[in-house]
Design a protein around this nucleic acid. Structure first.
Lengths: 156, 156
DNA sequence: AAATTCCTGACTAAATTAGTCAGGAATTAA
DNA sequence: TTAATTCCTGACTAATTTAGTCAGGAATTT
C-alpha cells in the first residue's frame, strides 16, 4: 500500500502555494523547478485540482495559481481525492457487492479502514503546516536558493 | 491511494484459513475456487506469507496451508507488509533525505500518516473477525455452496 | 505586439500488477 | 510402489497504471 507520486506531488505543490499565499500566485514553472516535478505533469494535476475547486488559475505575466478557498478549508483528503481518483480500500467501491452481489468476508474491514483514513486525512488542513516555524524557515531558504519572487511587486 | 488486489487477496485468503482452523489445513485450490483468485497467483503470495512466518504448508493429500501462529497474533499489517512490500507513504522510505538530502516540506505529514496507519492495521488481528457471528454464518453458506471439506476427517 | 502563463489533448515510456505456464518435491493412500 | 494430491519454484506474458513528453492554443499583462 503506497502513495503514488501523483498524490504526493499534488499535496507538495498545494503546500507550496499555500506557503506563498501572501506573495501572490505561484507559477507551475516555479514549483516544477523548486520541487523537481515535471512541468507538463504538474499541468495535468492542476487541471484536476482546478476542476475540483481547490485552485484558481491566473493567466498572463505575473499570473500563476492560487488557492480557491482558505487554506484552513483545504484538507489533504481533498487534494488526494482530486488527483488520485479515490481513497478507497474496498474492492467494490463501498457498494457491498464484492462477493457475487453480496458482501465479501473482508468487506467490513476495508470499509472501516477507508472511513478511518478518510477522516484522518480530512482533519489535516493546509494551514496547519503553513504555520509551522520549521517549515517557514525551510521555505525561505529554498526561495532564496532558487531566486523566487525577486521581480514581483508584493501582492499583499 | 488504493490497496492493490495483492494485499486484499492475501488478507482474504488468510482470513479464509483462520476461519477454517478447526477443520484442518486449507488448500489453495479451495481458496482459489471459493474466493475467485487465480491459483498460481495465490501460490506466489503464499510463498511470501510462508517466508514471513505467517503460514505453514502441509504437503500431500489432505494437506494445505495453516496459520503458523495464533490468529490473535497475526495482524492485517503483518499480512500486507509480507506481500505488498511496504506500508509507507514517504518518498524517502522514512529516512528523511527526500529533498536534496534533507527533509522535504511534506515529510512529516507522510511520516506521521504512515505511523498512524501502521498502528491502526497492526491492531486488527485475524481472530477479531473469526469470532464475528455474521462472518461465521457467511462462511458456512459458502462452504456448503462450494462443497468444501466434505471428504475430510475432522482434524480437530 | 511580444512575453508570459495557464490550459488542453494526444501521445509515449516505464513500472507495476496480475496472471500463466511448466515442472519438481514431499506426502499420503491405494 | 505407484498414483494422486498438494505444496513449491522460477521464468514468462499480458494488462494496467503511472509518469512523463510534446505540440499547440487562449488569456492576460507590459
Amino acid at each position: 500500500m503506497k502513495l503514488s507520486t501523483k498524490g504526493r506531488y499534488a499535496v507538495t505543490a498545494m503546500m507550496d502555494i499555500a506557503l506563498h499565499e501572501k506573495v501572490g500566485p505561484v507559477t507551475l514553472a516555479d514549483i516544477s523547478q523548486c520541487q523537481g516535478i515535471s512541468l507538463s505533469y504538474l499541468e495535468q494535476l492542476f487541471s484536476k485540482l482546478r476542476n475540483n475547486g481547490l485552485v484558481e488559475g491566473v493567466r498572463g505575466p505575473g499570473g500563476g495559481y492560487r488557492l480557491a478557498k482558505s487554506a484552513s478549508d483545504i484538507s489533504v483528503a481533498d487534494i488526494i481525492d482530486s488527483v488520485d481518483e479515490k481513497l478507497d480500500f474496498t474492492k467494490c467501491g463501498g457498494r457491498g457487492d464484492c462477493y457475487h452481489g453480496d458482501k465479501c468476508i473482508t468487506h467490513k474491514l476495508w470499509y472501516d479502514l477507508t472511513c478511518d483514513l478518510h477522516h484522518f486525512l480530512g482533519e489535516i488542513k493546509l494551514d496547519q503546516y503553513v504555520n509551522r516555524p520549521q517549515i517557514s524557515e525551510l521555505v525561505k531558504k529554498q526561495d532564496v536558493q532558487y531566486g523566487r519572487f525577486l521581480n514581483r511587486r508584493s501582492a499583499a
